[in-house]
Design a protein around this nucleic acid. Structure first.
Lengths: 345, 345
DNA sequence: CTGAAAGCGCTAACAT
DNA sequence: ATGTTAGCGCTTTCAG
């Protein structure tokens, strides 16, 4: 802003001391006597002094800020992680510079540039679904910029990352479905070029194989992570009269799409068709029936990510990367939650 | 970060020119010949130069950044607004420094200090539910800092604000309920010390009065904005065997609480008890039945807020404040959406 | 077209 | 205990 801002110099002149004295006094430097400190603080308060962080950071060559890049905000998963990241940063006197890539690789790239220009101390990134050029990230690494990737992770060696155990979580869900008696299990799988899509379908397949349940490729549908896709995928199978007994969806919105479609065609969940999804959201318990899911502990993801980034910031020399897998747990509510003897064939 | 960053000077030395030349070349200043520009750009690219925005901003005495303070993020309403704000900022080459007050007045105050220290060009604020000391905001105004308040607005004269027409929206919802035949209309009202609570109940009452429908004070319950409160309020009336025919809830989570409670006691929405709420959320259409609501156009709020803040930033002299009321519209889905002849008594 | 000088506000290092 | 000097990286005069 263009307003006249009070500077150290202004205070110094008023008190007939040097800027350095004021600077030190305000930062409680032991050099300065208690009396002068008190006076200086009082006056600067009165004058409405507010330190210029730009100048301070320029001088200190660090910003006390962490840059964050996420594909979107208005989404339970990212919203919750971001909120937690903010809280942790606040407790540690760090600022967060949040940017949104809108799932676009070019925007992501621009944000990286901007954040580097802002001289953030580190970067936390969740890459877009369409990112396929990883050179930007590589150059980040060779430059030695502290970076931690969360959830959506580029296929690069030796990077710090915090990831949900997608495979294990998917496995848990499918295993549970099998254990309560399901045999005809479908999977709406999202995009398989994204690591979460890849991992979740892997967990699905592994559970099926481990328990000797046949995988019907007709019931595995790729396509997207949004509710629209769940709706369409359901309708496709419905029209083919080829629905499984239960569908494991790659995300929670996809399950919403299934709910909507099922209601439209008059099928009752969980009796006519059952659902379980990957991903927690606060509204699931209010659905009818309440939707069971694989919970991804957003708080833990945020905590670990911040822990790693701080570690990296404080040990710039350290080069071995850490890969953290966050364990998931099944939250069983109104779906996929009772033995299905009626299906025994 | 502590890494060696390339500076203008580094490039200048390498090319045996002055920093100024490099600076100008990189910014496409007409002073510099096409040839040198080309060369300098090529080299700085090669060297991986990234301008130090801190230094640039310090020199320019402005930051090209807007500070935003919201009570929370993981919430549909704020999430959607923030997302839009980010997009608009991006299009205008502005940075957003987002901070979260966690509904705590002291944190809010700290954030204001920090953002001022960062020399943001302007501030967009949605105050906490517990803020009751408005002097911070007042001093902001006297300092001449461009500020726009959104949604949650302090009772101060002459401030820029963007507000949803809460009263009008509530009026619309209640009016609609009346028109389709409801007489026994309740209102779960949230906190009345917050402007949105105050306005919404005012709209409720006004509609009731305008249409000559009797207000039963037993059916107006204050208490909070979360689902828990909706649940409790419903249960209270249920236990007293004193439920109205329809409940207008102050927020969408409160309606969720009602859904949950109603299901628990075996009452069917909308037949046994009907609901309509203030506030849009993407999941409403997936509820059973899909929940009708008063939509608050988050995009418009964000757009207007950004418009006002830019206006203010570009005209620091301007002192007359603008107050924008964003119109709402009713989104009718599965609730509060059919004539209730069966209730005629 | 190019560059030298000065300053943005602050702090670390080195006197006094 | 206080002040002087110099520099963080960039940009805006203004002179050449």
């Amino acid at each position: 802003m263009k307003l006249k801002q009070i500077t150290l110099n202004d205070i110094a002149k008023k008190l007939n001391v040097s800027t350095v004295t004021v600077s030190k006094a305000l930062r409680n430097h032991p050099d300065i006597s208690f009396e002068t400190k008190k006076l200086i603080k009082k006056i600067s308060e009165e004058m409405g002094y507010s330190p210029n962080i730009l100048a301070r950071n320029l001088s200190a060559r660090k910003s006390n800020a962490i840059g964050v890049i996420v594909p979107k905000i208005a989404h339970y998963f990212f919203g919750a992680i971001i909120e937690k990241i903010y809280n942790i940063a606040f407790e540690n006197n760090y600022e967060i510079i949040l940017t949104v890539s809108q799932e676009k690789a070019e925007i992501e790239k621009k944000h990286i540039q901007t954040l580097l220009s802002m001289r953030v101390d580190g970067l936390i990134i969740s890459i877009t679904q369409q990112t396929n050029d990883y050179s930007v990230f590589e150059s980040l690494l060779t430059k030695g910029v502290p970076v931690v990737f969360i959830d959506r992770i580029p296929p690069l060696p030796n990077i710090n990352s915090v990831e949900v155990d997608d495979r294990g979580g998917a496995y848990k869900a499918v295993e549970h479905a099998i254990k309560i008696g399901y045999k005809k299990i479908g999977h709406f799988a999202g995009y398989l070029n994204v690591n979460i899509g890849k991992e979740r379908i892997a967990g699905f397949k592994q559970a099926m194989n481990d328990y000797g349940v046949e995988i019907n490729p007709d019931w595995i549908i790729e396509g997207g992570f949004g509710d629209q896709y769940g709706y369409e995928a359901f309708m496709k199978l419905y029209n083919e009269k080829n629905l499984p007994d239960i569908i494991f969806t790659v995300t929670y919105p996809v399950a919403l799409g299934v709910y909507k479609a099922a209601r439209e065609v008059g099928m009752k969940i969980p009796d006519d068709i059952d659902v379980i999804c990957f991903g927690y959201a606060d509204v699931q318990e209010f659905l009818h029936p309440p939707l069971s899911c694989v919970d991804q502990p957003t708080d833990k993801i945020a905590e670990k990510a911040m822990e790693l980034i701080f570690e990296r910031i404080n040990n710039p020399e350290e080069t071995t990367a850490k890969h953290v897998l966050i364990d998931t747990n099944l939250i069983l509510r109104g779906t996929c939650n009772r033995t299905v003897s009626h299906l025994a064939k």
